[in-house]
């Protein structure tokens, strides 16, 4: 029974839902549309129920950190209190004007935007890393990057770099994207087939 529930049934399910899902794309009939909408709603619904496991995981992770003596007590306490506060506020509504919204807007948003803006600095350090690599590939990457950066500035457009930038973006960059996309498409299709046929079953523990 355990083997049936842990392997046979799941493999049967990926086969059935996989084949039906793939066929659905070619069938415009109502039956097929209803199937698609139903399964999509169910998928979102089922995944959303994993959120309870996620919440338990979060609580357990920080609770254990607080209880251990590794010096993370303060930080995990802050995380836990903030987490529980948001859950508590959320229970009383999430509309504009609610405490949930206030905390989101005034705590989450400023930290979030600042985190995002850190990327400007990280781009600089990443460029330096590429510069130090001193390989032919890195040189190509950096040259293209510098041309495009200059091309988007007024200085660049005065020496026609804006046109070069446009050309790089719409010709070699497009070619590269297309080539990679085709490869990804072939690889993803093959992976999908292997899952449906039960050849790829790492998700079942190999």
């Amino acid at each position: 029974m355990k083997r049936f529930l842990s392997r046979t049934l799941p493999l049967l399910m990926v086969l059935i839902f996989g084949v039906l899902g793939a066929i659905q794309y070619f069938v415009p009939h109502k039956v097929s549309q209803v199937y698609y909408r139903t399964i999509l709603t169910w998928s979102i619904g089922v995944s959303s129920m994993a959120v309870i496991m996620a919440a338990i995981s979060f609580l357990r992770y920080h609770y254990k950190k607080i209880m251990s003596s590794e010096g993370d007590t303060l930080y995990s306490s802050i995380a836990l209190v903030a987490f529980l506060a948001m859950l508590g506020f959320g229970a009383f509504g999430t509309d504009k004007g609610s405490l949930f919204y206030q905390f989101y807007q005034n705590i989450f948003v400023p930290i979030n935007s600042t985190m995002f803006s850190l990327l400007a600095f990280y781009m600089a350090s990443a460029s330096y890393r590429a510069f130090r690599a001193k390989t032919f590939e890195a040189a190509l990457l950096l040259t293209a990057a510098i041309i495009v950066i200059l091309g988007t500035t007024p200085v660049g457009s005065s020496i026609f770099l804006d046109k070069v930038t446009m050309w790089i973006m719409s010709i070699p960059n497009l070619a590269q994207k297309r080539g990679i996309l085709i490869g990804v498409g072939l690889g993803a299709t093959a992976t999908s087939l292997k899952i449906i046929l039960g050849i790829e079953k790492n998700w079942l523990g190999g």
Partner: peptide, 19 residues
């Protein structure tokens, strides 16, 4: 494994022709 199979199977199926 049962909910995983539902999510992964339907996801892989819908994605196959689309991708």
């Amino acid at each position: 494994h049962i909910p995983f199979a539902f999510l992964i199977g339907s996801g892989a199926g819908f994605a196959l022709p689309l991708v």
